[in-house]
């Protein structure tokens, strides 16, 4: 464990908590892409199938929290507060993300076993899972500031993981090319948002995307 990965995981946890609190407190999932949340639930389910393999208390605890929180979020969006779910703007064709991720995982992986292919699929899936949400923000042209804080924390987590991978390569001579390439793609997808967040939201303005 290193500081980059620890802060990254905490940023990830913060994002998930911000989202859950936003939906629960406002009793509304307006502006939130249910499709992205379903993709995240798929990511954690397919990645943490190795949950029974005990690595550490921290590792097991975080995996359980991420799985539970992602399903709770999907439940809140599609069941409890489904009246506030914005179908009209959450229209990204997720099949164009799931299928290519799965095919790519079958073609490019470290080991052609069920667990390894599913882990690889979860890595590819996670790198594009935020697209429906970013697409929805661009369609609505704006996002509530709490939603942009969620996106900033979520985007920062994988950016910090890139620093973690650099650190691990330089100190442990260890690297995982699949995770690194997908992590860079994932972080790049947030760049446009990061720019808007830093230039606008941090100045107290609303996040307005050029329509």
């Amino acid at each position: 464990m290193n500081i980059f990965r620890l802060v990254g995981d905490l940023s990830h946890l913060l994002a998930i908590i911000i989202l859950l609190l936003k939906i629960w407190k406002t009793r509304s999932c307006a502006g939130i892409s249910g499709k992205s949340q379903i993709l995240f639930a798929i990511v954690y389910t397919s990645r943490y199938l190795d949950l029974p393999n005990f690595v550490s208390m921290y590792n097991t605890l975080m995996k359980i929290v991420f799985i539970a929180a992602s399903y709770a979020t999907v439940y809140l969006i599609y069941m409890k507060f489904k009246a506030t779910y914005d179908h009209n703007h959450d229209t990204f064709r997720v099949e164009f993300l799931v299928l290519p991720s799965f095919v790519l995982a079958l073609l490019i992986n470290h080991d052609f076993t069920v667990l390894e292919v599913l882990w690889t699929f979860s890595i590819y899936m996670e790198s594009v899972a935020i697209l429906p949400q970013l697409f929805m923000v661009s369609k609505t042209g704006e996002a509530e500031s709490i939603t942009s804080h969620y996106l900033f924390a979520l985007g920062s987590y994988r950016a910090l993981y890139i620093l973690n991978w650099i650190y691990r390569y330089t100190t442990e001579d260890h690297y995982d090319l699949i995770a690194i390439v997908a992590g860079i793609v994932q972080t790049v997808l947030y760049c446009d948002f990061f720019y808007l967040y830093i230039t606008k939201v941090l100045k107290g303005k609303k996040l307005q995307l050029p329509a």
């Binding site: 882990w119 691990r168 690297y175």
Partner: peptide
């Protein structure tokens, strides 16, 4: 060492 998958990462 080539991609020995980092099992300890989330």
């Amino acid at each position: 060492s080539f991609a020995v998958k980092s099992k300890d990462e989330l």
